[in-house]
């Protein structure tokens, strides 16, 4: 119930161990710094052990932490299966940005790129960079980069490299 002008509902889906929570937190933190209200819902517990992990991120004047099926603007699918698992959350013209073995206008093989980079865990940031390059998210790549390089953050070099790799793949 703030006076914000940005409204965006993002579903982030993956499996345990892919760092879905990490990406959710980055986006949420950046949104707060833009002066927006933020609500997030996270998966904890048993499902984190290799099961399905999903976060909901709502930016703007919302009150509940959950996204209703049929209303999300974007699905960030960190695992090929996540598309099937979560696409019912999207509204009619909602967009899917996916980590998938076959690349396309809105999909990229982030897993492979991350392994080639020598940092399998950074596939999540490659996908995020790719999504940013498509101008679909509420924020700019620069704010994410700034956030990743701030004091106290770990693995700054690898993270930035992965993010930029994703961005560059999206721009070509």
């Amino acid at each position: 119930m703030s006076n914000s002008t940005t409204f965006q509902q993002i579903v982030l889906g993956g499996v345990g161990g892919q760092g879905v929570l990490f990406i959710t937190k980055i986006l949420a933190q950046v949104a707060i710094e833009m002066g927006e209200s933020v609500l997030v819902s996270e998966t904890h517990g048993m499902a984190q052990r290799g099961g399905i992990v999903v976060s909901h991120l709502k930016i703007g004047g919302f009150m509940s932490p959950l996204i209703r099926p049929g209303t999300a603007d974007i699905l960030l699918a960190f695992h090929p299966e996540s598309v099937l698992n979560h696409r019912h959350f999207l509204k009619e013209d909602g967009k899917i940005v996916a980590n998938s073995p076959d690349s396309g206008p809105l999909s990229i093989n982030a897993t492979k790129l991350a392994i080639e980079m020598g940092a399998p865990i950074a596939a999540n940031l490659i996908l995020l960079g790719f999504a940013l390059s498509k101008n679909l998210l509420f924020c700019e790549a620069a704010s994410i980069e700034k956030y990743l390089s701030r004091e106290g953050m770990k693995n700054v070099d690898v993270n930035i490299k992965a993010l930029r790799l994703g961005i560059s793949k999206g721009e070509v």
Binding site: G16, G51, L84, N85, R87, H88
Partner: peptide, 18 residues
């Protein structure tokens, strides 16, 4: 009532030990 896209039948993924 509201028409809603139903969730797909995704392959089940059971939690496992690390």
């Amino acid at each position: 009532s509201r028409e809603r896209v139903q969730a797909d039948e995704a392959p089940p993924r059971r939690p496992t030990l690390c």
